[in-house]
Amino acid sequence: MKRHIIAIFTLMMTLLALPAMAQDSDTLAVRTHRWFSLHDIKLEGRVGFNIGGTAPLGMPATIRHLDKFSLTPNISFGVSATKQFNPKWGLKVGINFENKGMKTDARVKNYSMEIVRGGQTLGGWFTGNVVTSVTQWMFTLPIQATMMARKVRLRGGLYASYLTYRDFSGWAYDGYLRVDGPTGEKVSLGHNEGERGEYDFSSSMRRWQWGATVGMDWYVYRRFGIFAELNWGFNGVHKSDFHTIEQTLKPIYGTLGFTYLIN
């Protein structure tokens, strides 16, 4: 429910921004013409790096320590078109191809997990270390209202992503599993391949993600600029009927990069 409210709020803000872009002195015809004219659309190319994680909001108590967190090649590149309605306000749409990946190694206690392979399931409560590797290559379509403030353009809106490649896998190691629950058989898992519990939840990942995006572009030199943005996912990376990992994991990534004004 909360995420719907945030989404609707963001959408409303975007829509409310549109009338504000008009200047009162113009006639409706002039206004309409200017709004739908395409000749002043600015095209931009961009390349950036996604920094962030696919994580629960707030660390659950079962995760005791994040021993390692590394970013995978989270490149984001794309193009965007910005329609300026007046010197201050505009609308920006784009398409990005990007990866939102990460690799973590966390120490867990009583962490509910399940290894599912070939129709067989081994699940229970695990205490030990868990390596998680996430790769999500996707096309992202952001739509944002923009506001110029001197050399800086602030923007905010929504995005939708379609995943073309998804991987959520890893292994539990150096610990023990209590099969089916804390009073079940205790099964030790070792360190090396073959001794540890490999899991793969890739096929339980959603194809579609969406969320809010806010950012800023700063035009530094001629056509070159830099940008920073935050993309906050509203839905979890896994389908809603996936409960093996108790917490909903949401993709929350910032992007830093360069822009180039094409026209």
């Binding site: 707030g58 660390m59 320590h65 920073a228 935050l230």
Partner: peptide, 27 residues
């Protein structure tokens, strides 16, 4: 000024999400 502020916000939020600043008490 904007840039610094925005960047700071982004990094702060990212840090809150992924960094070990918010471990709960051990179960």
């Amino acid at each position: 000024k904007y840039f610094n502020h925005t960047l700071f916000c982004i990094l702060a939020v990212a840090a809150l999400v992924v960094l070990p600043s918010c471990y709960k008490d051990e179960p």
